[in-house]
Design a protein around this nucleic acid. Structure first.
Lengths: 138, 138
DNA sequence: TTCGTTAGAACTATACTGGTTACAACCGGT
DNA sequence: ACCGGTTGTAACCAGTATAGTTCTAACGAA
């Protein structure tokens, strides 16, 4: 199966850098720490900007957080970067046969359970702030 | 982002059918209820068989559960069908720069948190048995 | 104005998904 | 022993997401 894109871990990396090294935080510098192409970084910063997590000064360079580091959670980052259709982690097969008891019921019954599982995961993410992460660095 | 494959929901559908309509449960019949191609069904049944959840009688047709329906959970099905490399839901960017504090620490710190989030989700899945699902059908 | 930077379009290679066709192997019933 | 329905796979396809590259335009401070 496809894992959740590394965009997420890169985004967290970017925000951690911006939080701990606010000066010198150009796309190229970040790309050097993440060890990837600057364009990848710019794309992800674009998503973070769209989500209102960072401000970017075009031209002169530099990215700033728009919130305190204890106000940004992993869930914020996840939502900013993992743009899933209507936010559903689990996919469903389409149009099961309505003439069959299982086909008629499976979607609504299963979807409710999977929604709970997804929510459990997201709640865990919402409990971890950027601050929490950064203080664990050595 | 890529959602978790509909293989999962199809697998649950298959098992629900096998549990509720044990006779007549050929690949073609199941495909008719799921509304897809029989080969898709056979492939997924192959995964379920590999995981020890079902027995299949080749040639004459028919699939049987190997456990009671209250002994099969959504997590069992998920694990059987969503074959992720070493079971990690979240992907990581490779080789962050070890010369940078963030690059050096991000992976281990973040991975621990994401592992917890994943575990929270899987635990929810493990609390839902096939029996639980089936009794909700109308 | 110039230079480093951000913004983003366009393109590539790779891989997964869901699906199809085709064919071999299986096995109970006649 | 054959037949017919079934399972088990291989091979292939179109569509799409990922991660990455190259290139160009626009921005803005010195």
């Amino acid at each position: 199966m496809k894992q959740i894109s590394s965009r997420f871990s890169i985004a967290v990396h970017i925000l951690s850098l911006v939080a701990t090294v606010p000066s010198e935080c150009t796309g190229d510098f970040i790309a050097g720490s993440v060890n990837t192409n600057p364009v990848i970084i710019r794309k992800i910063i674009g998503l973070l900007k769209k989500a209102g997590l960072v401000e970017v000064r075009a031209g002169v360079g530099g990215t700033r957080l728009t919130k305190d580091i204890d106000q940004i959670t992993l869930l914020d980052v996840y939502r900013a970067v993992e743009v899933i259709e209507n936010g559903e982690l689990f996919n469903f097969h389409n149009h099961p046969n309505p003439l069959c008891t299982v086909g008629r019921n499976i979607e609504s019954v299963l979807r409710a359970e999977l929604r709970e599982a997804q929510t459990a995961m997201e709640q865990k993410l919402s409990q971890v702030s950027l601050q929490h992460l950064i203080t664990k660095f050595e």
